[in-house]
Design a protein around this nucleic acid. Structure first.
Ligand SMILES: [Zn+2]
Length: 354
DNA sequence: CGATTTTGACCCGCGC
DNA sequence: GCGCGGGTCAAAATCG
């Protein structure tokens, strides 16, 4: 199965290779001109509602990253809008769920704040965000095996002690335009489930990092409106460097993290996930589709936004999160896409949050 | 032969 | 209390 998709991609990719190279060149550029990026979103403020709708659909309320990317923490929430523009997708079609929509719409008023808060919503519930974060990572993975007197099934639930609900980990959503779901980000994932999505003909797949002791989860689904858009939501932070280095390439460089760390690190940026390689296809795609947003297309930064939102509690344990760096260095071609600007942006006032 | 995917069953929180 | 929707597990099937 996988082969098939890949093959297909290859076919299309070949012609676009050239384009790819070009893109790399632009990376630096984007870095220098981050301002241009948020410029766009501003224009589309009105459409903001749509994006939110989208978010809602996805069920992602934490960090939302779109291909567009926004450097400004403030704009983070609004950013998504540009994404739609990029795709030129008729936003109207989106938002199947009315009820949620209304709620979402409200969010715009408090753009980034809200989005961020949402992430902590779970924690907020218990008003224990700090603790929560820590727990999730340590205990999250520890599947327990306490009693075995009853049936196996019962134990699976692992009721845990406390009422922490579960899954308080911040999630990051990435929207990518790609034909394949398997975006390789440098980590090994094992699929553990697949479910049909309500308003979408496409199913949602659940993956988990195969590295022992790493409970990072990831879910992938396509947008119902734009089959070409794949939304990947990452949950948790890797506690290890890239397990495998895609052949060649720079591979893992422990020392590399510093630059990123410093830039993003401020809070929690630990979690930066690189985009998939299969991008090749997307990039070219963008070009043809949205000439205007070209810059964006190249950037495809996706993940960057997440970093800006950085969260406090994260750093505590995740300091050793080379993953971001690794990925960055891993492949010039791909990295370029996401790294880009936001890295340096990060948020400053937000820190007070903590 | 081991790792991974497939897939149906099952669990749980939530709204009615 | 029930049904729905989202998420997870685990046994069987596949892949490499
Ligand atoms: Zn991992």
């Amino acid at each position: 199965m996988e082969e098939k998709s890949q093959e297909i991609i290859k076919n299309e990719n070949q012609p676009m290779m050239a384009a790819n190279s070009t893109l790399s060149d632009q990376i630096p550029t984007s870095f220098g001109y981050p301002a241009g990026i948020f410029d766009m979103p501003c224009d589309y403020v009105e459409k903001g509602s749509f994006d939110f709708g989208f978010m809602d659909i996805l069920g992602i309320q934490d960090y939302y990253c779109t291909t567009t990317t926004s450097n400004n923490y403030t704009t983070a929430a609004t950013t998504p809008s540009s994404l739609f523009d990029l795709f030129q997708t008729p936003p109207v079609t989106v938002i199947p769920s009315p009820a949620s929509t209304s709620e979402v719409v409200n969010t715009p008023a408090t753009p980034n704040s809200t989005s961020i808060s949402s992430s902590s919503t779970e924690a907020a519930n218990d008003h224990d965000q700090t603790k929560a974060t820590k727990v999730e990572q340590d205990e999250g993975e520890e599947e327990e095996l306490e009693n075995d007197q009853d049936k196996t099934k019962k134990e699976l639930l692992k009721p845990k002690k406390k009422n922490q609900k579960r899954q308080r980990e911040p999630r990051f959503a990435f929207m990518t335009k790609s034909e394949v779901d398997h975006l390789d980000d440098g980590f090994r994932w094992r699929k553990y489930g697949q479910k049909a999505v309500k308003n979408s003909p496409f199913p949602r797949s659940y993956y988990r990092c195969t590295t022992p002791a790493c409970g990072v989860k990831k879910r992938v689904e396509r947008s119902s409106d734009d089959p070409s858009i794949v939304v990947t939501t990452y949950e948790g932070t890797h506690t290890h460097p890239c397990p495998v280095t895609p052949r060649g390439s720079i591979g893992i460089m422990p020392g590399t993290a510093p630059p990123f760390n410093g830039g993003i690190g401020g809070g929690a940026s630990s979690y930066i996930i690189p985009p998939p390689h299969h991008y090749q296809q997307q990039q070219p795609y963008f070009h043809s589709q949205t000439p205007t947003s070209l810059s964006f297309g190249n950037i495809t930064a996706t993940s960057t936004t997440a970093s800006s939102l950085s969260f406090p509690s994260f750093d505590q344990e995740r300091r050793f999160c080379p993953s971001p760096a690794d990925s960055f260095l891993r492949d010039h071609g791909l990295l370029q896409d996401m790294i880009v600007p936001s890295l340096q942006v990060r948020k400053e006032p937000k820190d007070e949050w903590n």
